[in-house]
């Protein structure tokens, strides 16, 4: 048996972010949530916001986000995260308040709350995981489910006559005067991860500067719900999701 090798600091190329807890994550292997959690934790730490960040977790797979990032958290009822964030930010304007929501939470049951928080120009950030499916309840149709996509409640594929069309809430939010920044990112390649992290940082900075609401949409995989291997899921996302949900900034009032 090999002797235990002591890791020299100069050889350390990667470590778990300081604000990620030791709790074992419940996310499926291949899921995007873990990467996005890591980015949120890193940005909070790098911005020195450990003591000033308040997160709102949703109902959905990320309901337990509070178990993994070592900051103060409130767990919201389904879809209402932005109303909690509204009150918290208005009562504690010195704090950095963000919600972390999935497509069902943000764009189905919480559409009204999301749009009105944006319309009021609340100085909060929404991290929006769009994987086009309900993960937690077992793979049902989300508002963002692509046409033809099979889910537990669209077993023959999403039929527009029956189920309507996939919903681009990022684009909808970008129309609102109270929203300062909407961007669509992904975390399926190292380069994408770096860009997503920059976007999250920019959003948090907007919130602290009082510029209005920022929305960072992450086009993500749900390989369990999609019934694909992690690698296949990434490929499928590139081929199908990104065609309908193209990456890039949808709105940035700072960029003139």
């Amino acid at each position: 048996m090999a002797a235990e090798v002591e890791m020299k600091p100069e050889n350390l190329v990667y470590a778990k972010p300081r604000l990620i807890t030791d709790k074992t994550m419940h996310y499926c292997p291949g899921c995007s949530h873990g990467v996005v959690h890591k980015l949120v934790a890193e940005v909070i730490d790098e911005m020195g916001l450990e003591h000033d960040a308040i997160g709102i977790s949703p109902v959905g797979c990320a309901v337990l986000a509070y178990d993994y990032i070592d900051i103060d958290w409130v767990e919201s009822a389904h879809g209402r995260a932005t109303t909690l964030a509204t009150a918290i930010k208005r009562l504690r304007p010195d704090k950095m308040v963000f919600t972390y929501q999935g497509d069902g939470d943000l764009a189905a049951i919480g559409t009204g709350e999301t749009i009105h928080a944006g319309n009021r120009g609340e100085n909060i950030t929404i991290i929006f995981i769009n994987n086009a499916i309900y993960g937690m309840t077992g793979g049902q149709m989300a508002p963002t489910t692509l046409v033809g996509m099979k889910t537990a409640t669209t077993p023959y594929g999403r039929d527009t006559h029956l189920n309507g069309y996939p919903y681009k809430i990022g684009e909808v939010m970008s129309l609102l005067d109270g929203v300062c920044y909407v961007t669509r990112q992904s975390v399926h390649t190292p380069a994408a991860v770096r860009k997503a992290k920059k976007a999250i940082r920019k959003a948090f900075e907007n919130s602290m500067a009082g510029r209005g609401l920022s929305l960072v949409e992450i086009v993500a995989t749900c390989n369990s719900g999609w019934k694909l291997s992690p690698v296949e899921a990434n490929r499928w996302m590139e081929e199908h999701m990104m065609e309908f949900y193209p990456l890039g900034d949808l709105k940035d009032t700072e960029k003139k």
Partner: peptide
């Protein structure tokens, strides 16, 4: 929304 704002505020 109002009661959930209350929830957020009360949590603080």
């Amino acid at each position: 929304a109002a009661i959930n704002m209350v929830y957020g505020g009360a949590a603080c």
